[in-house]
């Protein structure tokens, strides 16, 4: 079996980000269902939060490239 440990780290980082973004999305859907008139605010905040969660995963992925 070939491959590097970095790939494993990348996968772990993606799991974390996946859970995080899933939570953001789920709660945003709930919020929209409760208050459909606030859909605009909720959507842009949801994207902002998802982007911030993604940032942590991106740092992990880039480090896994560099520390290979």
């Amino acid at each position: 079996m070939t491959g590097s440990l970095a790939a494993l780290g990348m996968g772990l980082a993606v799991i974390g980000a996946g859970i995080g973004i899933g939570q953001v999305g789920a709660k945003a859907m709930e919020a929209i269902a409760r208050q459909p008139e606030a859909v605009g605010d909720i959507r842009s905040n949801m994207i902002l939060m998802a982007a911030l969660v993604e940032g942590a995963a991106l740092i992990a992925i880039v480090f896994s490239f560099l520390v290979r």
Partner: peptide, 13 residues
């Protein structure tokens, strides 16, 4: 410093 770095990485990735 991390803020602009993630800004660059996010778009790139």
């Amino acid at each position: 410093f991390i803020k602009p770095i993630t800004l660059a990485l996010r778009l790139f990735a």
